[in-house]
Design a protein around this nucleic acid. Structure first.
Length: 544
RNA sequence: GCGCCCGUAGCUCAACUGGAUAGAGCAACGGCCUUCUAAGCCGUAGGUUACAGGUUCGACUCCUGUCGGGCGUACCA
């Protein structure tokens, strides 16, 4: 509908003798007040400056020349300072309802990103320990944005980037070795800043089972590190799977060292005078890109900082032919992002092809108190523990229900509450309730002809249909803004409109024609709820 | 100090990216189950959108400043 209205307005605007550049974007919005119609455009207000005329006059001229299909639009009014308000025709609602019924599990899909290949990088936790709730927000956000983009036509690959070579991993290996020796009754102490988590002992135990005491004299840490890495990755993948997340690829940072792209990048920077040596280190002129300070690319020890492989990695992604690369990361990494953009730009890539989703931190609230966490110190709550407490559906929902850009308070008590306090159940309950009705209808009736949707004339019915058919637009906007919480807000509206309908209009026991029409409506709503919950990665039970 | 993000009902958060009278949930108060799931519905109350200016037809949204909170600000990742 939005695009239809845009199109007829654009048609009408040809009367004004405006150049393309003078025409502002034609915005179509859903007014807050129902008496302002079903859709409204502020185009006349936006044109007032360009045309040097008062907005109401402009609106009148636009409406005068507006050719619209009466099967779609019932009325056009000018209101307030110059808004153009549209009322939908009843037939339009019925046509759209029919479309929902026809398209079923595909209703809501759009083609705006058809043919686009997108690489979405997320989670990307190094294999030093189990995933924590912080990674959880990352994982769920990334996966859901991927699903949204898929619904708008894109082909999305999910990639996990990791580093198994750095200082952290050495500490991990040393920590495992210590625990291994302790398991065998030997004196050993954790290194400074070693990992204290219980899972380190599990890894050590596995090594004892596998090798007995044969590793006691092992001076190097490679065996310990490798065992740790493989066990931790197994664990991470199991956790992700529990949340309905499946990565398409894992990219080891080591690759960009091995294939020489790191050296190549540095050389390219040097050629463009964007890199120089100072104090034994190699620096990147980030000041050329508007930063206060230059940044070290290679330390005086000869080891690159993480920025350099990061840049090479992004170049690698674009080399693989993706139209767009999206990274999901926490607010604590925000500073490196501009450097990566500068880096790939310097290498001749289009920085517009790289986009980020930044999310703020998660605070777990347990028994009314915030819970502070650190992976190394092991006083964290793992994602698995969180799911043990509240399950995967609620975990996903809570991570998604707020805008990524605000701090998230995850109240375990609220999440555990059955029903009343818990918003997840509200959506699932509406879905289950519809299926309960559908089961009863199936038992009691058998319809021979198509439903007469024209019988749906109750106010609650129209409202419900109007909300329902906004679904594709919602997906579109949630995907474009990479903000899944919009979809959640929408689904709550839809569920709420359905329950109002449920209370106002009975289905069973009415005239057979009405039973059939309302059943069709209910079925369509269930379909949209199921589609929406599916995008969120949350189950839509038919019975509760 | 500097940079990024945030400040909206008692609490947790929305507000379609500048639109018309700022909305939900929880908490509080009142009402609704002999008919499709009361995990629900209806109603009442709750606001100077942190504060002060500015931009314009119009500001929670943009700009400047102040206050408060978070995260960065390493030759750590």
């Amino acid at each position: 509908m939005k695009s239809y209205l845009r199109q007829i307005i654009r048609q009408s605007l040809t009367q004004f003798d405006l150049s393309e550049d003078d025409i502002p974007e034609i915005q179509i919005e859903k007014p807050n007040q129902p008496e302002h119609g079903d859709s409204a455009s502020n185009i006349a207000l936006n044109l007032a400056g360009v045309l040097k005329d008062n907005p109401r006059n402009i609106a009148e001229q636009i409406v005068e020349n507006l050719n619209y299909d009466e099967r779609k639009v019932a009325a056009v009014e000018i209101a307030g300072p110059g808004f153009i308000n549209f009322r939908y025709a009843e037939n339009y609602l019925f046509d759209e309802l029919q479309a929902v019924l026809d398209q079923e599990q595909d209703f809501g899909k759009t083609t705006s990103l058809d043919g686009q290949r997108i690489l979405l990088e997320f989670v990307s936790a190094n294999p030093t320990g189990p995933l924590t709730v912080g990674h959880g927000r990352n994982a769920v956000l990334g996966d859901t944005v991927a699903r949204l983009l898929e619904w708008t036509g894109a082909e999305v690959d999910r990639e996990y980037y990791f580093n198994n070579a750095g200082r952290q991993m050495r500490k991990l290996g040393q920590s495992v070795r210590t625990r291994y020796l302790q398991e065998l009754g030997q004196e050993a102490e954790l290194p400074e800043d070693g990992y204290e988590g219980e899972y380190i002992r599990d890894i050590a135990q596995a090594l004892v089972e596998e090798h007995g005491d044969k590793l006691v004299d092992e001076e190097g840490i490679t065996v310990f590190k490798e065992k740790a890495e493989s066990m931790i990755f197994e664990d991470i993948q199991a956790t992700l799977q529990r949340m309905n997340i499946k990565m398409d690829s894992f990219f080891n940072e080591q690759e960009v060292y091995d294939d020489g792209s790191i050296e190549k990048a540095v050389e390219a920077f040097r050629e463009k005078d964007l890199a120089y040596d100072k104090d034994g280190a190699t620096w990147f002129r980030t000041t050329n890109f508007g930063k206060d300070k230059d940044t070290v690319l290679i330390k005086s020890t000869g080891e690159p900082t993480y920025r350099l492989p990061d840049i090479a990695y992004h170049a690698n992604k674009l080399d693989r032919g993706y139209d767009q690369c999206i990274d999901v990361f926490g607010a604590d990494h925000i500073d490196t992002y501009p450097d990566v953009l500068s880096g790939i730009q310097a290498l001749g890539y289009d920085p517009d092809k790289v986009d980020v989703v930044v999310y703020q931190f998660v605070t777990i609230v347990k028994e009314g108190k915030p819970f502070k966490m650190s992976t190394r110190k092991a006083n964290f709550i793992t994602l698995d523990e969180l799911m043990d407490e509240v399950g995967s559906d609620i975990t996903r929902f809570f991570f998604l229900m707020r805008s990524p850009n605000t701090h998230l308070e995850f109240d375990i008590a609220e999440a555990q509450a059955e029903g009343e306090k818990n918003p997840v159940f509200y959506l699932q309950y509406a879905h289950a309730r519809i299926h309960s009705i559908l089961r009863k209808v199936e038992d009691e009736y058998s319809f021979e002809n198509d439903p007469n949707l024209g019988l749906l004339s109750h106010e609650s019915e129209s409202k419900l249909i109007k909300t329902m058919i906004r679904f594709p637009e919602m997906i579109q906007s949630a995907a474009e803004s990479r903000e899944p919480h919009r979809l959640i807000n929408y689904l709550e509206d839809l569920a709420s409109d359905f329950t109002s309908f449920y209370h106002d209009c009975r289905i069973l026991g009415e005239d057979e024609g009405l039973v059939q029409a309302r059943t069709a409506l209910a079925k369509a709503v269930a379909q949209v709820l199921a589609n929406g919950l599916g995008i969120l990665g949350i189950s839509a039970p038919e019975q509760m």
